[in-house]
Design a protein around this nucleic acid. Structure first.
Lengths: 205, 205
DNA sequence: GTCTATAAATCGATAGAC
DNA sequence: GTCTATCGATTTATAGAC
């Protein structure tokens, strides 16, 4: 137990370098597959040095997962009462898609964690996340009841947005292999156009 | 190099017991996370005995992946010319959903492999799978051009079916945590109803 | 704070008895 | 064919010099 002390700017920066390196490693190989050596290499420091700042590989992983969770659910948090409900849902979907495009490693890290039973997130899934989803589902259900969007199960609608947007990040290898190299550059523009049209058709009253 | 010999019934059965155990282990923990000891325990035999039948952990994994691939793409293979294109696509989507329900471990194993760069499947993704998808996409494009279904990008339509159906298997932990225990029993009936309505609205001309 | 060297644990694979 | 025992490689984490 070290006494609480001011964290210097250098300490904070070091930690951030390590977290960035670890994110890359964990996204590529998962918790078990990623080694301290690989993280240390990516961070440009020695293995014991990485441990010195976080205590253990597990601590880096857990720290990363927790700090990213808030960023990850922010678009859903921002979904709220709106004059144009359909537009609000489309905005949510588009923000999620943009996050897949810009933060594919974060998406893969969450996907791997959940896929393997979410041993470090279960509490939050059935606690904070469930509360948030229930709250937003109630909002969507109201829009649905008022005839502003189609009658549709709001929970499954949210799942479908998660599934379809994150698919482009999590399974990018497969998507790019199937589409071929020539469609790789405009991929996210295509996805945006497709999903927008898709959800408009499915959701308008 | 042993000379080719008849594989006995017992040998085949042993291999199947090991493959079943390995599927469970790999789906839970991935290739790196799953240990030979865990596979051996699940299979009810000793560690060297498992190696005796397959040579290595890697061989079990590769064998399993290859043998499951054919089963996995069969529903798409069966999508073909039909008097009612919308019904044909819905049937495909429903078969995929049923596979998620009945074969969640297979779904998770593929998901983990692709998520981590598909080192043992890349050839097939950009070869056989791309060919198959391109072929079926051409069929869907024809339906679309003939006005039998909505105008829509067929490749992304296929991705959306993969994403939404496999989401219920791959992220079951999250889905069940968010929905709560009381909705767990009827989950796949709910998903079927939601997805059917969803795709009908999105696809009808 | 940062490193080299190494301890300690885990795990895949093999040797060899039966 | 099947097992126990064990080797050898990998990997996390620590000790200790600077």
């Amino acid at each position: 137990m070290t006494s609480p002390r001011k964290v210097t700017r250098i300490q904070r920066e070091k930690r951030e370098v390590i977290l960035a390196a670890a994110l890359e490693a964990f996204a590529e190989d998962g918790l078990r597959g990623a080694t301290l050596e690989k993280i240390a290499d990516k961070a440009g420091m020695s293995k014991p040095h990485v441990v010195y700042y976080f205590g253990s590989k597990d601590a880096i992983y857990t720290d990363l997962l927790q700090s990213l969770l808030e960023v990850w659910v922010q678009p859903l948090r921002d979904l709220s009462e709106d004059a144009d409900p359909l537009a609000a849902i489309l905005t949510y979907m588009r923000r999620k898609l943009r996050m897949s495009q810009e933060m594919p490693r974060e998406s893969k890290m969450f996907a791997t964690e959940i896929l393997h039973g979410a041993p470090r997130m279960r509490q939050q899934l059935s606690g904070d996340l469930k509360s948030l989803v229930d709250e937003k589902a109630a909002l969507i259900a109201r829009w649905s009841a008022e005839g502003k969007i189609a009658k549709i199960d709001p929970h499954h609608l949210i799942f479908s947005i998660w599934a379809m947007t994150q698919h482009y990040a999590d399974f990018d290898i497969q998507v790019e292999a199937v589409l071929g190299d020539d469609r790789k550059a405009g991929l996210y523009d295509e996805a945006d156009a497709f999903l927008t049209e898709f959800f408009v058709r499915a959701l308008r009253p």
